[in-house]
């Protein structure tokens, strides 16, 4: 199975799961964002492997578009983190519960 599409897909799924684990188990919003970036990378790897397997270049173009989206997201997310940090002086994701139902009750 080495160097086949299965190996690449399995690796990409594994990286996606690692990113998912980071998103749901960490409290630092900075690290959560890094995990999202990691998942995007896994999807990228999958697209490139599939484009090689199917002999189609479209997958690589889509991967490039994903890189562009990730870059735009990085800029916006960082500025959002800056705004949130100015409000609450912390990066703990538990603090941002303004919309939570529990607080209202």
């Amino acid at each position: 199975m080495s160097n086949s599409i299965t190996a690449y897909m399995f690796l990409a799924m594994l990286l996606l799961s690692i990113g998912f684990l980071g998103v749901i188990s960490r409290k630092n919003i900075f690290v959560i964002y890094m995990s999202i970036e990691l998942m995007l990378n896994a999807v990228n790897l999958m697209f490139v492997a599939l484009s090689r397997y199917n002999d189609l270049m479209s997958g690589q173009i889509i991967a490039m578009c994903i890189i562009a989206v990730a870059t735009a997201e990085a800029g916006i997310f960082l500025s959002l983190i800056v705004v949130l940090y100015r409000r609450k002086k912390s990066l703990d994701s538990d603090i941002f519960n303004t919309l939570s139902q529990k607080e209202a009750l």
């Binding site: 578009c65 989206v69 870059t71 735009a72 800029g75 916006i76 500025s79 959002l80």
Partner: peptide, 15 residues
Amino acid sequence: AAIMLLVAMIAGIVL
């Protein structure tokens, strides 16, 4: 993608 990056840049500056 180019327009999206421009919008993201403006949004970052405004925020």
